[in-house]
Amino acid sequence: MNRILGGGVAIVAAYILYPVIRFLSPPSVALGEQSKVFVTDTGIMKRNTAKYFKFLDEPAVLVRLPNGTYTSLSAKCTHLGCTVQFRSDGDYFHCACHGSEFAITGKVMRGPAVLPLPKYQVSVSGEKIFVSVPIEPA
């Protein structure tokens, strides 16, 4: 009898808790319109500089390399989420929170981070520079 009662209480608790837990977790946002964003016009950024912007609800960075081409990566440190800083003195990214460093390709140069920064696709249309969804991990 006690087991039946206990089981009943557990079922009622689950009935109450399940919707509460689902309510706490925010619904996923459709990324359709966000999957490609305009960042800046060509010719605005100097060589060896970076521009930060919001992409897929997270910080991202567009870098104009010394050879004039562009590259874009997620700026969210893969260690614990701080926004990494572009260091023009050595063409790498530094995370001020725990000291991780990433190459311009996104590859980890120094821990504690172990995963690379995801790389994004850069496309130039006329005089406008767009960044789109990740093509592959660096």
Partner: peptide
């Protein structure tokens, strides 16, 4: 500014 990087020395 949530887009800008974490400052050095944080």
């Amino acid at each position: 500014n949530p887009v800008m990087p974490a400052p050095v020395g944080i």
